[in-house]
Design a protein around this nucleic acid. Structure first.
Lengths: 211, 211
DNA sequence: AAGGAAGATGAGCCTTTGCTCAGATCCTCG
DNA sequence: CGAGGATCTGAGCAAAGGCTCATCTTCCTT
């Protein structure tokens, strides 16, 4: 053992201290995200990522304990971005009347899923079961947010706001994800937006306390 | 080269002729499906599958050109089973009044997704992009079926039956898949069934020709 | 019952890929 | 300027997994 006793690097990750290091980390994460989105999880080998990022594999492993850790970091950043987009698309929605608010909601959810659909899908495919938590947590948060928004509108008079929120968020999410995978261009179709609007309004109407 | 000139085995798959061979193929497919469902795509190595099926790897490769071909076969069988379950759960639905028909539809879609959810998910993860066609085709067929069913009910007076069918099928599918992954036990919750019912009825109501 | 086709075997080749390590290079700061 | 930490390098190890092939066994046919 050397004189300078290293503390056991339980996670052998070094946090970048100089700005150069930070740039390297960013380059690695970005390269990985690109490969993941364009060629899928299988193509995102550590060597390929390092090559694309323009660094050596050794450097990659200086900052990430293993491949999984890298994927997790990508997941974290991706969720943060989705969150930001969603929040931006929803600002001021409380002040709007119901129809306008619904339109805004539709646009927001679509925008959120548009952030990086291929990457989103690739992450779902490649993250080990135990590490989907980051993404799951975000989805739960979205449901909670919508639930709260629904509950605060007395006009809706919902019997079970949380349940309705769950149905709407998961339903719309699935609809958008499926469409994005099979007919991506269709997401621009105004008719689809109208149909989603109808689904939301209809569901809300049918979920009132006294039908 | 031997005297008996082999025709080039472009796809080196041998179709079983004796019943023994058929049994072997079934054992292999079943073993693979089990591993896929229980431990995920990564664990479904060809060697592991052969071991679980109780045959040697050589035998596996006698019937399947490569790993992908095996996965495709599993996909084919799985889709066939879902189709059968769905058809069974929908028999006689045309004769029912709307509310009852909707309940039946909800039950049918849930039943269909229950067939082998883990396997379903694993297939989506492991099938190469080019080979999701089998699954996609089935989903398209389901949408067409529902679309037709909706259009044939004059009482609904839908403006765009196909569009409404798409929204409903993809929406419900996403809802069920998400729930199955995150809170599987909740699929038995009657409240959720009611919420789905509300979503369907509401969406139908809001999608009429003249609102 | 004999020949040949169908079926089965499994050691091991070969490629891929995650990851390590011994050192080279770059920065910062006294 | 020079020491020492931060950063980077890349050949290559070891494990894993897809797949082949030479050979053996079982079954059908006549």
């Amino acid at each position: 053992m050397p004189a300078t006793a290293r503390k056991k690097p339980a996670k052998r990750r070094r946090s970048p201290i100089q700005s150069r290091g930070q740039a390297t980390v960013d380059a690695i994460v970005e390269a990985a995200a690109q490969i993941l989105a364009r060629k899928g999880p299988a193509a995102a080998t550590t060597n390929a990522v390092a090559a694309r990022a323009g660094v050596s594999i050794g450097t990659l492993y200086q900052y990430f304990a293993d491949r999984e850790a890298l994927l997790q970091e990508i997941g974290r950043r991706h969720v943060a971005e989705m969150q930001a987009v969603l929040a931006a698309a929803l600002t001021g929605i409380d002040g709007l009347a119901l129809p306008a608010a619904v339109d805004r909601l539709v646009a927001a959810i679509v925008a959120m899923h548009r952030v990086a659909p291929r990457l989103h899908q690739a992450l779902h495919q490649s993250l080990a079961r135990d590490h989907l938590d980051t993404i799951d947590a975000f989805e739960v948060a979205v449901e909670a947010m919508v639930s709260h928004a629904l509950a605060s509108r007395d006009e809706l008079d919902l019997a079970h706001p949380a349940l309705t929120a769950t149905v709407l968020v998961r339903g719309l999410g699935g609809l958008i994800r499926t469409t994005l995978r099979r007919e991506p261009e269709r997401l621009d179709d105004p008719a689809l937006a109208l149909a989603m609007r109808a689904m939301i309004l209809g569901t809300l109407g049918e979920s009132r306390r006294r039908t």
